[in-house]
Write a protein that binds this DNA or RNA. Structure first.
Length: 387
DNA sequence: TCTGGGGTCCTAGGACCC
DNA sequence: TCTGGGGTCCTAGGACCC
């Protein structure tokens, strides 16, 4: 039986490397992928750019200050999604026990591969070689006994490397690290931990679990107490169903005026509807998100009896939720989410119903769009905006 | 330099039911 | 007349992750 059967596979600077496949002049220089507008942020930075302090989630303007020669490439998520599908196909050709964490990251349980491989490390090297030869992309792999250790191992293997953390050495490896490496420990939790005098994982291991639960909450306290002690029983769970679908947009300039805001909301409803229908899903809960000029952010949601996936319904509910807010200007961001998802059945109604005519129109519109692209047909209100 | 977009999970309060 | 405990659902906000 293999002692360390968990692999964490993580693509290196994924968006940047996909862009480099298409444009080799981007190799060997500081490059970042992200928003190029006035409010853009960096999504992925090359290692050459990281040497200048460029980081993901950093405002693009700030990245350019830090690294004046930086090439910033606008992101193309459709293409990254296509490459991601090929990466996951390759991973699943090794084992079905693949749990995706994002477009460029996955856990694998390779326990079942003992007949064909000498060790989990050999599986990891085969995976890296496959991603390199079939897709032309670099990746890093962590091999360990648990998810936590495998993830930390891949992190320390980057870029383009593999690290194996044997079960016997894992506590020592873990305790030397800052507490912020643990999953769920971000800025707020870090500050709470600092009040308890905790900086490293070994500090954390000294704190009584009851104290942790009191200052961090029940779930987080329990989880961290366990992880610090090296206990991580989380299994690799092959992919589960989506719980929400959402779209949002930050505008280059804050929106003012109900007409303008209404049009923007309609555009979002339309985008969300397309994504729901492509996924064959409908939502029973619609959530409107509004970020104001001062960055204050509020959400308003409504759960309804029958699920919706059409832009007319989404737009109407979003408009009603918007009307419930008193001061709505200026608007920096609008977002729309569908949750409490269920598969769309969309049975044909035989009786005459006021919604039927519109359902048929939406079906026809959907058909044309899926054949000619999203922009082929849009609500008339959107035409003067971008088309 | 000024803060993206797409997600997941947790908490807490209130409504409602048994 | 006053007071239960538990479970589920809904809403809003927040932390976190990539």
């Amino acid at each position: 039986v293999w002692e360390e059967p968990i692999l964490h596979v993580d693509m290196d600077s994924f968006f940047v490397e996909v862009e480099r496949l298409a444009d080799p002049t981007l190799r060997g220089i500081p490059v970042a992928v992200g928003g190029t507008g006035p409010r853009g942020v960096i999504a992925s930075a090359s290692y050459e750019a990281r040497a200048f302090g460029v980081r993901s989630a950093q405002p693009t303007a700030m990245a350019l200050q830090a690294c004046p020669g930086l090439r910033v490439v606008p992101s193309d998520h459709g293409r990254y999604a296509e490459v991601s599908i090929r990466v996951f196909e390759l991973l699943r050709s090794f084992t079905p026990m693949v749990e995706g964490l994002s477009v460029d990251e996955a856990f694998l349980d390779v326990s079942g591969l003992r007949r064909h491989h000498r060790s989990p490390v050999e599986v990891g090297e085969d995976i890296r070689a496959g991603i390199r030869s079939e897709l032309g992309l670099p990746s890093s792999v962590g091999v360990a006994a648990t998810k936590l250790m495998a993830k930390l191992a891949s992190e320390s293997a980057k870029p383009d490397g593999l690290r194996h953390v044997p079960r016997s050495g894992q506590v020592e490896f873990l305790h030397s690290l800052p507490a912020s490496v643990l999953p769920g420990v971000g800025p707020a939790t870090q500050a709470a931990l600092a009040k308890l005098g905790v900086e490293t994982v070994s500090d954390l291991a000294q704190v009584p679990p009851a104290t942790m639960e009191r200052s961090l909450g029940r779930a987080m306290g329990r989880q961290l107490a366990g992880l610090a002690a090296g206990i991580d029983n989380r299994k690799v769970e092959p992919d589960s169903e989506a719980k929400s679908l959402s779209v949002e947009e930050t505008f280059d300039l804050d929106l003012e005026g109900v007409e303008v805001i209404g049009s923007a909301l309609l555009a979002l409803a339309h985008r969300l509807s397309v994504r729901l229908r492509r996924s064959g899903l409908s939502g029973r809960t619609v959530t409107l998100k509004v970020r104001f000029g001062d960055f204050r952010t509020v959400t308003r949601s409504r759960t309804i009896e029958g699920p919706v996936d059409g832009w007319r319904d989404l737009s109407r509910i979003a408009g009603e939720l918007l009307a419930e807010l008193d001061a709505i200007e200026p608007v920096r961001l609008l977002g729309l989410a569908a949750t409490t998802l269920e598969p769309s059945s969309r049975p044909r109604q035989l009786d005459i119903d006021s919604s039927q005519g519109w359902d048929r129109v939406e079906d026809a519109v959907f058909e044309v769009r899926s054949r000619y692209g999203e922009r082929a047909i849009r609500p008339a209100r959107l035409l003067d905006e971008d088309g």
